[in-house]
Amino acid sequence: MAELLNITGLKAGIEDKEILHGIDLSVGEGEVHVLMGPNGAGKSTLGSVIIGAPGYEITGGSIIYDGEDITGEATDKIAKKGVFLSFQNPIEIPGITLSNFIKTSMEEITGQRIKLWDFKKKLEAVMETLHMDKSYADRDLNVGFSGGEKKKAEILQLLMLRPKLAILDETDSGLDVDAVHIVSEGVREYKKQVGGALIIITHSTRILEALDVDKTHILADGRIVAEGDATLIDKVNSDGFEQFLG
């Protein structure tokens, strides 16, 4: 597989506090990577820094995506290149409907106007695969959505925007078994339809049920302390993170 993302010696933090102490990570096109680790290990920080979140300072290393250096690039420019971050706590936006938001995003990313009728048909089809009621399309984005609906709305965006690299930040947290199953199906659909690469940040393995994991990384205290294939996930499940901590 050709390399899609290459992170080398990445150091980053907030204000004077360094959180990531030199991360090396390489993701090939279409690969599925799982990022696990105890609370406060820096998993979400890594996802946020890749997509250029404000408030973080990159003090060393580089992020090369699709052959281009995107270290410290503006978030919207990184997103336009095909990187997607699914938020742990999706934001509510009164006045902008879910449908309008996704259409605007698609138009911004592709740089092309999208015909409303084509868009609606596609949106409705994807909503059906996610067992989302069609009425959500005309509701203000995430306003009054349950935790599960918010996460589904994130996966809906993933399927509509079709990024080359998707970072899912604890998309399965706070969901009941059925919702995790639906979200997991959505992620599988993304793999099937788009064939993009995934970095899945998770505490549990339920979201991985329908996916073939290529590589697992264990992050602790801002460093990658162990790497391996999917069997590493089972090891974490049986023995916890303690075994990887110095």
Partner: peptide
């Protein structure tokens, strides 16, 4: 945080403000 969310979907700051005004 709202601006970051919109930008993570490819929406520029200028466009985000225009959208929020309209909203």
């Amino acid at each position: 945080s709202l601006l970051f969310y919109m930008r993570s979907r490819g929406i520029s700051e200028e466009q985000a403000y225009a959208l929020m005004e309209q909203a």
